[in-house]
Design a protein around this nucleic acid. Sequence first.
DNA 1: TCGCAAATATGACGAATATCATATTCTAAC
DNA 2: GTTAGAATATGATATTCGTCATATTTGCGA
Lengths: 143, 143
Amino acid sequence: MLTNSAKYAMKAVLFLALNTNENNKMMVKDIYERINVPQSYLAKLLQELSKHNIVSSSRGPKGGFYLDDKNKSIRLIKIVDIIDGEQRLRSCMLSLKECDNENPCALHRLVGDANSSFIKNLEETTIESLIADVRDGKSILPL
Amino acid sequence: MLTNSAKYAMKAVLFLALNTNENNKMMVKDIYERINVPQSYLAKLLQELSKHNIVSSSRGPKGGFYLDDKNKSIRLIKIVDIIDGEQRLRSCMLSLKECDNENPCALHRLVGDANSSFIKNLEETTIESLIADVRDGKSILPL
DNA sequence: TCGCAAATATGACGAATATCATATTCTAAC
DNA sequence: GTTAGAATATGATATTCGTCATATTTGCGA
Ligand code: FES
Ligand code: FES
């Protein structure tokens, strides 16, 4: 479903959303232990996300990664599409084409609307709204 | 979610369920094109499934793979657990532990009951009942 | 302006998945 | 029995994913 890289990226972005802003940046070396992602790997992922403007960054002393308000309004789907590619999440269980409700493969009804509703949720949910749940204690940021 | 191998295995088993029985076996070389799976790869998968008694087989002239009635009453989950291992399907979106509804991670509600209901369906559905849909034209076996 | 602290770029390596190939073993049929 | 046709066992290779390491670039602060 999601690759490990995408999960790490999510954790990182969510963590940044909770702990940073324009005036409060964080460096890779201060993040990786908190979210349990290998340091260099995290660096690479954040650089990739930065290149695509999902997260913001600045170099030099006092530099680091952070999320500004614009970043926080980004939808989750962008993260996984950038890290995993757009295909991975959307391919059918049996063939390699996209799901087709008209001509469902034998497994289609087993997965039900599960997958498509998951995708839809990713498309609709912004980083911002997701972390609200964490702040409210409705969900947690594990590890 | 499912590995490519698991998808291939599913296709193969479903195909065998539709086209074989004790008196009507099929060889790898007559199957692989029909389900669009590389020949040697399919062979390996079927051998693995055979070892675990998901499919039946016999060697020598007139031999091949097939599904008997007992095989057809097997539940789909066994196929994926054997090919992918039991963990893969069941790990949480963000951490590596199993999902916990008490302490849901930030993404838990996005995937909703999607994943767990998919697993449940796999646990409940037998090969037999699944191919009934194909026979009835309710679903297809793609590629 | 200089030096240092950070991200960035690049690429090497390892591990798991996907694929291919071949030698061996079993067995039905003659 | 012998033979030929099939699965089986084994392992080599390719590709993708995950991880690590390092040289380079950029910009803040003294
Ligand atoms: S058509 Fe195959 S999962 Fe939807
Ligand atoms: S607790 Fe993370 S997906 Fe369920």
